[in-house]
Amino acid sequence: MASQGTKRSYEQMETDGERQNATEIRASVGKMIDGIGRFYIQMCTELKLSDYEGRLIQNSLTIERMVLSAFDERRNKYLEEHPSAGKDPKKTGGPIYKRVDRKWMRELVLYDKEEIRRIWRQANNGDDATAGLTHMMIWHSNLNDTTYQRTRALVRTGMDPRMCSLMQGSTLPRRSGAAGAAVKGVGTMVMELIRMIKRGINDRNFWRGENGRKTRSAYERMCNILKGKFQTAAQRAMMDQVRESRNPGNAEIEDLIFLARSALILRGSVAHKSCLPACVYGPAVASGYDFEKEGYSLVGIDPFKLLQNSQVYSLIRPNENPAHKSQLVWMACNSAAFEDLRVLSFIRGTKVSPRGKLSTRGVQIASNENMDAMESSTLELRSRYWAIRTRSGGNTNQQRASAGQISVQPAFSVQRNLPFDKPTIMAAFTGNTEGRTSDMRAEIIRMMEGAKPEEMSFQGRGVFELSDERAANPIVPSFDMSNEGSYFFGDNAEEYDN
């Protein structure tokens, strides 16, 4: 993207840094990872977990959730003011799984939030270390993106479920800051804005008074975040219109849905970061690795190297396929839920299948599930090659597409044709070009129609051997075009429920 120079890199967003050079960025990201790792080690000690239990991804998720809940100030305040039966607002906890007599047992633990905050700050040299908290939120978000298709949420806001490739980060909490905003897809931002506008339509006082002023500035800020994701002048001009509207209503909703559809071809720039579970960072720190000293990046080879040398386990339900569970977590670790499966298959070195073909449910185990038949197995999170994460949407291309997802959002900077089903997408653009945004709409449609099938995206960008740390010898991959490109292809993934 041309304006790259004016933006802070995501590592800076990730670490609240002012302008830093590459070495400083690597050190501050490393410091953040160190903090998460030290916190995780301490929690495993508190909970008396064995090494194996500490490497269980379900335990990692519970521990991450506990610290996120302990620092969720708004919710904590709300819980104190609106006490609900049987919930102690000062405590947080969740299921911890232990191996007892050759069987997995679930144990519900409860801790004072104050105590968890103390352990977290102690692991982070006394700081609140917001960057580390956001990092864990993005890992949870990436896992949700890989596990669930947001059909219901899309339909509720009037969008087409086939636009799911635009929904990265749709389950990120509001408090995820600049680093969170960077990884949100165009569809996620559109959905947040539509929800806001709908509230304004239904509630006369939404934009009024002292609160209304705050609401208005939040609305304009979200519009600017979305505008910054678009790469064409016409899309940005249309966002200006939406932002400046005196009284946002149905016309703005129409414009936003139009823009979301246009992003299936004229893709937005959305950041991709490899955020790993805390149970990967903990053992690495415990083994003596100093992330701050060595430096770390979320968008280069580092996460690949770390996963190459990590042992992570997962509980497996009786009829689940461990290899499929591994694929789910591998995609989440690489922030690749909406990437082209052919690119992923090449990088991973084994075939990556669409969601609907995987015999696996989510990673988390519900409290009512029976533990008797639970097994555990090693997650295979290694890769054959590594590639640089991208934040450009890439230019655009036609490809055989599917009944489910009709476009992709690249996660890796790797040369390819970008699949999208042009006739299906263009069919949504018939007729409606009147109104105050008509010239911009016409211009956007013209650009979409001009998108050429034979153009290559990320020209000359390749993948790298894991021994090639400096990215000196790019390998331009070859793809098996007979395979499906979309992950949520004609899909039956479970729906995400809060």
Rank of each mutant, 00 (worst) to 15 (best):
M238Y: 10
K31H: 14
K90R: 15
I406A: 12
I253G: 08
Y385V: 03
E320K: 07
P477D: 11
W386R: 14
N334V: 07
I194C: 01
R150K: 13
R400K: 08
P161N: 08
R267Q: 14
A471W: 10
I257H: 15
R75V: 08
L68G: 01
T215Q: 12
N125Q: 00
V285R: 04
T437A: 14
Y40K: 10
H135V: 09
F258V: 08
G356I: 08
N250G: 03
F346P: 14
Y289E: 07
T433M: 00
I201Y: 11
G462S: 03
S141Y: 13
F479D: 13
R342C: 05
T171R: 10
A428Y: 06
N250W: 03
S297L: 10
S287D: 10
F412R: 03
N144D: 09
K357M: 11
P474S: 13
D491S: 09
S482L: 07
F258N: 10
P322E: 03
G86Q: 01
L266R: 04
Y496T: 11
M238A: 01
M159H: 06
E244Q: 07
E24S: 15
N321M: 11
R441F: 08
T360F: 10
M43V: 02
G93A: 07
D290G: 14
P248T: 06
V476W: 12
R19L: 06
I138E: 10
E369P: 01
N205Q: 05
R243E: 07
K91L: 05
Q399I: 15
G362A: 05
F346D: 15
K77I: 14
P354L: 08
V312L: 03
A123L: 01
M481N: 11
E434G: 09
R208S: 12
Q459C: 02
S353P: 04
G249R: 05
L49P: 09
N21G: 00
A153V: 14
L358P: 13
S353E: 09
P318A: 07
G37H: 08
M66L: 02
D160V: 04
T92L: 04
P95D: 09
Q398L: 03
A263L: 09
K48H: 06
L143G: 08
E81T: 02
T390G: 07
T62C: 02
D101N: 03
S262F: 05
I25W: 06
S402G: 00
N124I: 12
A234S: 05
D34F: 00
Q42M: 05
F291S: 15
W330C: 09
I119G: 01
R382A: 09
P354E: 03
I257G: 08
K214T: 15
N205T: 00
Q405Y: 10
Y281G: 09
R441M: 09
W330S: 01
G404N: 09
I116D: 08
R99E: 10
F464L: 06
G93W: 11
G460R: 01
K91C: 05
G158V: 04
N205G: 00
L49Q: 01
M32N: 10
D51K: 02
A336Q: 02
F230G: 03
M159W: 12
A323W: 06
N144M: 06
A237I: 07
E114T: 06
N250A: 15
S60K: 04
E220C: 11
V408E: 15
R236D: 15
N76C: 05
G485F: 13
D128Q: 12
I138H: 14
D468E: 05
Q122W: 02
N370G: 05
S28A: 00
L61R: 04
V242E: 14
W386T: 11
A323L: 00
N492C: 12
Y148P: 11
M196D: 09
S467G: 15
D439M: 09
P410T: 01
S345T: 01
Y281T: 09
R175C: 10
G288F: 10
G185R: 04
Y40C: 14
A234T: 14
Q405G: 10
L328R: 04
T396P: 15
G185S: 00
F420Y: 06
G268T: 01
A472L: 13
A403F: 06
A237G: 00
G169H: 14
M426V: 14
T215W: 12
I265H: 12
L110D: 07
E107G: 07
L379K: 08
M371H: 07
L47V: 01
S326C: 14
G187T: 08
N124P: 03
L193E: 07
G228F: 08
L110N: 10
E81D: 04
A472T: 15
G94V: 08
L315D: 01
V109D: 07
L306W: 11
R400S: 07
L154H: 15
N397H: 12
G249L: 08
L133R: 06
Y487G: 11
E24Y: 13
K452S: 03
G185N: 04
A271R: 09
G249H: 10
G5L: 13
R195G: 09
T430P: 05
R99Y: 01
Y296F: 13
E495W: 01
K87P: 03
K273H: 09
N368F: 12
Q149M: 11
P161K: 05
Q58D: 07
N309P: 12
Q308V: 00
I301V: 05
A179R: 10
A123H: 09
N483Y: 14
M191L: 05
P318G: 14
E375Y: 10
V285L: 03
L344P: 14
Q235F: 11
V463E: 04
A401W: 03
K422P: 09
S392Q: 06
P89F: 01
E114D: 15
G356Q: 10
Q311N: 02
Q231C: 05
D340F: 11
V67R: 10
E210W: 08
G295R: 04
E115W: 11
S353W: 05
M238C: 06
V242T: 03
G200M: 13
E11T: 02
M163S: 07
V270E: 10
E292M: 09
I301C: 05
V463Y: 08
I475D: 09
N211F: 00
A237H: 00
Y219H: 06
L344S: 05
M32A: 04
R361P: 14
Q241T: 07
N417Y: 05
G94H: 08
L256N: 10
I63F: 02
G268N: 02
A131I: 00
F429A: 06
E73P: 00
T188C: 03
R216I: 13
E454G: 15
P354C: 03
P173M: 07
N21A: 07
A179V: 13
T430V: 13
M371L: 02
I253T: 14
F464H: 03
G169T: 03
R118G: 05
T360N: 03
K357D: 08
M448C: 08
P89D: 04
F412Q: 12
A332I: 13
T390A: 04
K31D: 07
R99Q: 03
F412G: 15
R416P: 08
T130D: 09
S359V: 00
W120N: 11
Y281D: 09
A181H: 05
K305H: 03
R213G: 01
D468N: 13
A387E: 13
D240M: 12
G450T: 01
L259Q: 01
E292Y: 07
F71A: 03
A387T: 04
Q20S: 03
F71E: 05
G54Y: 06
V190P: 02
K325E: 15
T215R: 01
A129C: 03
V242D: 13
D145P: 08
E11G: 03
R441D: 08
V463L: 00
F489G: 10
M447S: 01
K229A: 08
Y10T: 00
S50P: 03
Q399D: 13
I475F: 12
Y289I: 14
A428D: 14
S438T: 06
W120Y: 08
W207R: 13
K273N: 03
H272G: 11
G158T: 02
R221P: 08
E292D: 12
I33S: 05
I33E: 06
L328P: 07
K293Y: 10
E18I: 01
I25P: 00
S297F: 06
M105E: 01
Q308P: 08
N498S: 08
D160Y: 04
R416G: 14
K293G: 07
V476H: 12
F464K: 09
I265G: 05
L49T: 00
D145H: 01
A237S: 15
S69E: 05
M440F: 00
